[in-house]
Amino acid sequence: MKIGLFIPCYVNAIYPDVGIATYKLLYHFGLDVDYPADQTCCGQPMANAGFESKAFELAKNFDEMFDQYDYIVAPSASCAAFVKYNYPSVLKGSHPCRTSEKIYDICEFVHDVVKPVKLPGRFPHKVSIHNSCHGVRELHLSSASELNIARYSKIKNLLSLVEGIEIFEPDKVDECCGFGGMFAIEEPAVSVCMGEDKVRSHVAAGAEYITGADSSCLMHLQSIAKRNKLPAKFIHAVQILTSGL
């Protein structure tokens, strides 16, 4: 099984440790992991801002670069969801998208494909899970609160494998954090208001750490917590999963 690691642009630049943890976890499972050197961004920022056509070349290169792998794994649910659901239409008129079927978010991949029953290490902390919009409503990492379907959470299942952890969730369990790419700068008042509400509800849930599958939401919330001097620490779920590695 050959895995192509996709480390999205902002994870690469701001959260390289999340990338390293992703690699470590996959390596721990004995998987053959490669990182294509010329990868950059999936193109979602431009597309969500209304310039999907500016993502065309990126999508085309991505599709060619990652086609050689059996699976593509990324530590960012939103980016993975963009490749999965938007690439086929972005690439319309070029060639049929091949990577959309192969891409996984790291939590989704470990949960659904690797299916570990135990993980080494301890994380004796209170964590609150940030259920990100695209993780929940596009990748189905947990049951969306709006739907009448059986309740589940893949992230919760995975985190529960780590000894000592106490897991919480905020009120309004999967409400948006207000990031939304360029939404954050086009509607700053609403975006910040949403983010402040979200950090506070995580803190109220008893979180020492706020965690999740989407570094972009965590980045937004971290920026808000820092400005408001709110006592919350941020950690990607994969960093907790590798705490013993």
Binding site: V11, I14, Y15, P16, I20, P188, V192, M219, S223, I224
Partner: peptide, 18 residues
């Protein structure tokens, strides 16, 4: 900088993953 409205800037890591 509309990001700076109510938010601190994220800090770039000393060295990137790539």
């Amino acid at each position: 900088n509309a990001w700076g409205y109510g938010r601190e800037m994220p800090r770039f890591a000393g060295e990137s993953f790539s």
